[in-house]
Write a protein that binds this DNA or RNA. Structure first.
Length: 418
RNA sequence: GUGGCCAUGGUGAAGCGGUUAACACAUACGACUGUGACUCGUACAUGCGAGGGUUCAAAUCCCUCUGGCCACCCCA
């Protein structure tokens, strides 16, 4: 094996790219309908951006980032997620001065140094959307509805929406205290990982998959019972709006986020189909993030979805595009006629293929079949001089005489349902 | 970072110590002298992830490395 790609970095081959385009185009359509505009930010940022936003103690920052020192001795990092960079740009360009309410979406590669696995790679792609400047639960509901609409648009009903509220800097500390004191009693029953989590991030013990831990934490206090008045009202209103729009969801009070900046509403689109990579999209509110990054005190909410994971859920569909017409030729002079015809058809937006190598008619017809052309036509001496030819519908072999003109061919293609 | 499983051509694979690495699909050309799909024929791994070792003999046994998959961790 000569040269291979870097571990966890994948090529998206032509057989896959049709599916990717479909996902990306659907996202653009749904997001733009909701008033979101694309923002394109760099793949590389100063390391500090991520340690300050995602959180120093998170696994992502602690051990999963591609961090390097560049030739100017600056510590730089390949973005492990999208929100931080988008908010950096929002602050840097003072987008809030024009309008504190910004609705932004982005798509592109993210990088995390993890052990590759099904639905998880070191370079992976996310499509995300963010709304800044709105505290009202209306924004939460619109984001959730938009995410739901996206999955409906691409034809997936499988991932289901789970929501939770993590509270705010007011009420979360109190919850942590009460959860810790509950867990202290159960220490003996917890797994090693959970004992470690107890210190670092006690909320994490709640979604441990070890049966013993699940049992031990069964009666644990719920975040939702410890929300302060404001957070409680906020969450209740989010739910009311979701009900108003008949958006299906379930509440999962054990759902936890891996990034530190989340507050209040958090959510995931989860599926059973991808093994342990059950989260296809996830996000939440981050009311303190912009200020934390040195911007004004503007709230935000958003999500990101994993393109690879969505693509994995779509594998049964065929997204290949097919030529409208394949032109086969007999003889050198006729190739000029065929080429001119192809050129004219392409200029009119008709997808045409023809033989490139002067192969036998049989080879050309085989190629027409392989490319799944809707029609084929043979241009030889007779056709070149008469200016008309028999167009063969490949599906059933039916042939129709038509003039070798763009107009006549357009009519022919349009009268047949493709 | 931890653990389990696996590595034969473009693909799916047979082979389980002994001359030319089965079969199928895919691909190329042809039988069909102006027409695809069906049928038939021919071609297509000096090579069995890489490197060592055992043996008269290794794709087949042993070791190391590399890679892949899956699970844990974590996460989109």
């Amino acid at each position: 094996m000569a040269l291979t790609a870097v571990k966890g970095f994948n090529d998206i081959l032509p057989v896959e790219s049709g599916r990717w385009h479909f996902i990306e185009q659907t996202a653009r359509k749904v997001f733009e309908l909701n008033g979101f505009e694309e923002i394109r930010v760099p793949v590389l940022e100063k390391t500090e951006l991520f340690s300050r936003s995602i959180g120093d103690a998170t696994d992502i920052v602690e051990k999963e980032m591609y961090t390097f020192t560049d030739k100017g001795e600056n510590s730089i990092t390949l973005r492990p997620e999208g929100t931080a960079g988008v908010m950096r740009a929002f602050i840097e360009h003072k987008l809030y001065a024009q309008d504190p309410i910004a609705k932004l979406y982005y798509m592109g590669p993210m990088f995390r140094y993890e052990r590759p696995q099904k639905g998880r790679y070191r370079q992976f792609h996310q499509i995300g959307a963010e709304i800044t400047g709105v505290t009202d639960p209306l924004a939460d509901a619109q984001v959730l509805n938009m995410l739901t609409a996206f999955f409906r648009e691409i034809g997936l009903t499988e991932p289901t929406l789970q929501i939770n509220s993590l509270g705010c800097p007011e009420c979360r500390p109190e919850y942590r205290v009460s959860l810790r004191s509950f867990l202290e009693e159960k220490m003996g029953q917890l797994c090693d990982d959970c004992r470690r989590r107890f210190a670092a991030n006690p909320l994490r013990t709640l979604d441990c998959k070890v049966p013993g831990c699940a049992e031990a934490t069964a009666g644990a206090p719920s975040v939702l019972d410890h929300l302060c008045g404001g957070c409680n009202d906020h969450f209740a209103t989010v739910r009311r709006y979701l009900d108003l729009s008949a958006t299906p969801y379930s509440i999962n009070s054990r759902m936890v986020r891996g990034l530190d900046y989340y507050t209040r509403t958090t959510f995931e689109m989860v599926t059973m189909l991808l093994g342990s990579q059950s989260a296809v999209a996830a996000g939440g509110r981050y009311d303190g993030l912009i200020a934390q990054l040195g911007g004004p005190a503007i709230p935000g909410i958003g999500f990101a979805m994993g393109l690879e994971r969505v693509a994995l859920l779509l594998t049964n569909q065929d997204f290949a595009s097919r030529p409208d017409l394949f032109i086969a030729t007999m003889g050198e002079g006729e190739r000029d006629v065929a080429f001119s015809l192809m050129d004219a058809l392409l200029k009119s937006g008709i997808r045409v293929e023809m033989d490139y190598e002067g192969k036998s008619l049989k080879s050309q017809m085989r190629r027409a079949d392989k490319l799944k052309a809707y029609y084929s036509v043979v241009i030889g001496g007779n056709e070149a001089s008469s200016g008309k030819a028999a167009f063969k519908r490949m599906a059933d072999g039916f042939q129709t005489e038509a003039l070798l003109t763009v107009a006549a061919i357009q009519v022919l293609l349009n009268t047949t349902e493709q």
